[in-house]
């Protein structure tokens, strides 16, 4: 498995589900718009006072980790894991 640390700011399309949960559905990376096939896992973390929402999303044979900074509502693509 190859792990690549990215740390790039990215544009993300996300929807709020009926339950109120946020679900990323696509993100722009490397000049392409990648459709999220499945959110495989999500978790929360804090950086000081700021709550960070993390999402592991599957696109083809790759899992990307997206992170939403809830204070600035900015998304970052943290790393990718290739099978």
């Amino acid at each position: 498995m190859d792990v690549v640390d990215l740390g790039d700011s990215v544009r993300v399309g996300a929807i709020f589900e009926e339950s109120g949960r946020l679900k990323p559905v696509w993100f722009a990376y490397d000049g392409r718009r990648l459709a999220v096939e499945r959110v495989t896992y999500s978790w929360r973390d804090r950086d000081g006072d700021v709550k960070i929402l993390h999402y592991a999303v599957k696109v083809g044979g790759t899992v990307y980790e997206l992170a939403l900074d809830t204070s600035t509502l900015s998304w970052r693509l943290e790393r990718s894991y290739v099978e």
């Binding site: 498995m1 792990v3 495989t40 896992y41 592991a56 599957k58 899992v63 894991y81 099978e83």
Partner: peptide, 21 residues
């Protein structure tokens, strides 16, 4: 198993979770 939830292909494979890469 938490890692395997995020990365489904890890299920059933020999996996080591280590302190740091």
């Amino acid at each position: 198993n938490v890692e395997a939830r995020a990365k489904p292909w890890l299920r059933g494979k020999p996996v080591l979770v280590v302190g740091s890469r």
